[in-house]
Write a protein that binds this DNA or RNA. Structure first.
Length: 463
RNA sequence: GGCGGGUUGGCGGAGAGGUUACGCAGCGGAUUGCAAAUCCGUGAAGACCGGUUCGAUUCCGGUACCCGCCUCCA
């Protein structure tokens, strides 16, 4: 099995060859933990979880190490602490727990390691010292700055030159900077901001150094894949490369860089002011099942901008709903994923192609394989049609009541049909259809399915 | 202003220099008391302008529009 991945660094699709097939190593930039993850935050999680699943399948579950960090020292967290009066650790612990709940719901496997930045201050300080010793960084006025001009390849990842960026003239020019593009490795803290003692005084790390330090500690100076959202390509990843490559000049740092494109909502950039901002938790609470949210993500290739729309969700729901009727016996299947689905993912994570594979399996009646492939993708894990369609019904008691009500209506419908009283039969049938219940009248009897449009309140209007 | 990406049929969305993507919706048929479901069949595209080529939606250049980053908002 050959995996091919688009490498942002070379801008080409390349054959993936692990440095060590017994230990394939991937690092993905994780969240800053100050609030619930929004829907855009979830895209890289699902994208790289899909890659994680593929790598585990190809190289073996015990031969893949996936690291995703938690940034738990950050000015947004400090601001939240100041605003609420709560200790920082409370806020970050709570947010991490939320993150786990929400991402678990999307079917994302937990990474092998989820390091917190605050637990790696020592390695960060050590790396900063190495950079200073090597002439790549300098301390000034309690700050330590990375000397961008000392790394000749700076800008290679994002296709920019230092001179072009300065011409853009939007960089902060602080008096303690030798060059406007130099960025902070360490900055001073006051009495109310979190800080640690260091050779340069009491302070806290800049944003970028944590990923360089933690990837080094957990994956080594060279590893296979580094991922994250496209928005991180510059400056974050560019700075990571500069730091890591200058601190460990003989190593290659990440071989393959992968960036997922951004997410929009109903055709617009998600923003609080447009009112199209929502969190994963908002969707889950409204009854959008996590596995369907995941399926919506898989409908668009990771390298393309993705639009979250209600219509797209409905499409995913309808499709999975249709399939789920044939999968009830295969909830526990141990069948391996099909060659076709693995090949689709191996081709630069072509998840839309993977969905086409699923449709072909369905069309050909290969239901157990369909179940196995859905499980492999993390899109379905034995959910019944009702769990896919009953959006707003969470409690079993309600469900039971509704099911009794529909059964009773169907008994009346059958009675009228036996009497050839088609007027009354149609009245009930149309009422059920109006309520979003799909009615099937066959020679052997009458049955029904709840469609995604099901609205229980409309059942009461049927006389 | 600088850099990067995108633009495919009514909608979603891929691959491939030349042969049906696929799904949804539509249309026709089988079936049905009528429907639904199912099955069979079917129309529909490649932003615009040039270039390369025997041939381009697929390669190259330009234009328009959209998006992202350059501002520690993913």
């Amino acid at each position: 099995m050959t995996i091919r991945l688009h490498n942002s660094k070379t801008r080409k699709k390349e054959e993936f060859t692990p440095l060590d097939p017994k230990n394939v190593r991937m690092y993905v930039c994780g969240p800053t933990v100050y609030d619930r993850a929004h829907i855009g935050n979830a895209r890289p999680v699902v994208v790289f979880d899909t890659l994680f699943r593929l790598l585990r399948h190809v190289y073996g579950a015990d031969h893949v190490t996936y690291v995703r960090n938690f940034t738990d020292v950050d000015d947004k967290i400090n601001a939240k602490a100041a605003e609420t009066g709560r200790p920082i650790r409370d806020i970050t612990d709570e947010t991490i727990a939320w993150y786990h709940q929400d991402m678990d719901a999307l079917g994302a496997l937990r990474p092998t390691h989820e390091p917190r930045a605050t637990e790696y201050i020592g390695p960060m300080v050590a790396m900063i010292q190495t950079l200073i010793d090597g002439g790549h960084a300098y301390a000034k006025e309690g700050h330590v700055l990375f000397r961008v001009r000392s790394y000749k390849n700076y800008g290679a990842l994002s296709g920019r030159s230092v001179d072009d960026m300065i011409a853009g003239a939007r960089v902060e020019v602080a008096p303690f900077k030798e060059d406007p593009m130099d960025f902070v490795l360490w900055k001073p803290s006051d009495a109310v901001t979190p800080g640690w003692d260091s050779p340069w005084g009491y302070g806290r790390p800049g944003w970028h150094i944590e990923c360089s330090a933690m990837s080094y500690e957990l994956l080594g100076a060279s590893f296979d894949i580094h991922g994250g959202g496209l928005d991180l390509q510059f400056p974050h990843h560019e700075n990571e490369i500069a730091q890591s490559c200058c601190a460990h000049p003989k190593a290659g740092f990440a071989k393959v860089w992968m960036h997922n494109e951004m997410l929009q909502v109903e055709g617009k950039k998600m923003s609080k002011s447009l009112g199209n901002f929502f969190t994963v938790r908002d969707l889950l609470d409204q009854g959008y099942p996590g596995f369907l949210i995941r399926m919506v993500f898989l409908m668009t290739h990771y390298s393309k901008p993705m639009d979250w729309t209600e219509a797209k969700f409905r499409q995913a729901q309808n499709e999975l709903y249709k399939w789920s009727y044939w999968l009830t016996n295969f909830a526990e299947t141990k069948k391996q994923p099909s060659k076709e689905i693995v090949e689709a993912l191996a081709d630069d994570l072509n998840t839309p192609e993977a969905l086409t594979v699923l449709r072909t399996l369905f069309r050909d009646g290969k239901y157990e394989q369909l179940a196995a492939d859905l499980k492999f993708l993390g899109v379905w894990d034995g959910q019944s049609p009702d769990q896919i369609s009953l959006l707003h019904l969470h409690n079993a008691e309600q469900r039971h009541e509704i099911s009794d009500r529909i059964d009773s209506l169907l008994r009346n419908l059958e009675m009228y049909r036996n009497e050839k009283n088609y007027a009354d039969a149609d009245r009930i049938k149309n009422g059920l259809i109006e309520a979003g219940v799909s009615v099937q009248i066959g020679k052997l009897g009458t049955s029904y399915e709840l469609t995604p449009a099901f609205d229980p309140t409309k059942l009461d209007q049927i006389k």
